[in-house]
C-alpha cells in the first residue's frame, strides 16, 4: 500500500490466507439455546419456541457464503452464517426466527409450490408466503426492540441490514 496511513484493506490478506481463520463463536448448542431464550421473551415469537419442542425441530448452524435461513423440510431448520465476520447475536436471532417462521408456515399448510408450477402461480404463492413471514418477523423485531433488556441488540437496525428496511418502515407506519 503506497498510502502512509492504515491499510483499509488489510482484511483482504486474511481472506486470501490458506487457513482462513473462522471467527470464534460460542458453541452451536449455546447459540441456539440463547437465541430461543430471547425469542421466548416476546409474545410475538413465544409460540415459535414452543413449536421447536412440540415438533422436535432439528436446528443446525452451517457455514454459508451469505447469511441465510433455510428450511428444506419443516423439521429441519438451518441458519447459515458466514465464516468471516459472522452474524452478531441480534442478526442471528432474527435469522433463526425467520427459519422458524418458515417451518411454522409449512406446518400450518402453506407448502411451497412445486417447481413445475407455472411461473405466475409460483410467484404469487411464494410472494404471499413471504409477505406473511416478513410481516411476522417485523412484529418480532419491533417487540424485542422495545424491551429494555435487549436495548443493546438493535433489532430494527439488524432488520434493515437483512434487507427488510421497507417492510420494517411499513410495519412501523401502520402501528
Amino acid at each position: 500500500m503506497s498510502d502512509t496511513g492504515k491499510d483499509p484493506f488489510a482484511n483482504l490478506d486474511e481472506i486470501l490466507s490458506p487457513e482462513t481463520s473462522v471467527s470464534s463463536l460460542p458453541d452451536e448448542k449455546v447459540m441456539i439455546e440463547k437465541a430461543l431464550e430471547v425469542l421466548s421473551q416476546s409474545s410475538m415469537s413465544f409460540s415459535l419456541t414452543e413449536m421447536v419442542t412440540e415438533h422436535s425441530l432439528k436446528i443446525r448452524i452451517i457455514t454459508t457464503p451469505r447469511e441465510v435461513s433455510y428450511v428444506p423440510e419443516s423439521k429441519d431448520v438451518y441458519v447459515g452464517i458466514t465464516a468471516i465476520n459472522p452474524a452478531q447475536p441480534a442478526k442471528f436471532i432474527l435469522l433463526l426466527a425467520d427459519a422458524l417462521l418458515e417451518a411454522k408456515l409449512e406446518l400450518d399448510g402453506y407448502k411451497q409450490p412445486p417447481i413445475t408450477e407455472a411461473r405466475e402461480k409460483y410467484i404469487s404463492m411464494t410472494a404471499e408466503k413471504k409477505a406473511r413471514k416478513v410481516a411476522h418477523l417485523c412484529a418480532i423485531a419491533f417487540d424485542l426492540d422495545q424491551k429494555e433488556q435487549f436495548s443493546g441488540y438493535r433489532f430494527i437496525e439488524e432488520m434493515n441490514k437483512l434487507g427488510h428496511n421497507r417492510a420494517m418502515d411499513v410495519f412501523i407506519q401502520n402501528l
Binding site: 433455510y70 428444506p72 417447481i115
Partner: peptide, 27 residues
Amino acid sequence: NFATMPSFSMEYISDGKAFLPLDGTAN
C-alpha cells in the same frame, strides 16, 4: 433448493464421487 423463498443455493466442487461445499472462504 426451491423449497424456501428465496431459494437456497450452495455450490460444490466434485470429481463425481466426493462433493466439497464452497462456504465463502478460500479454504
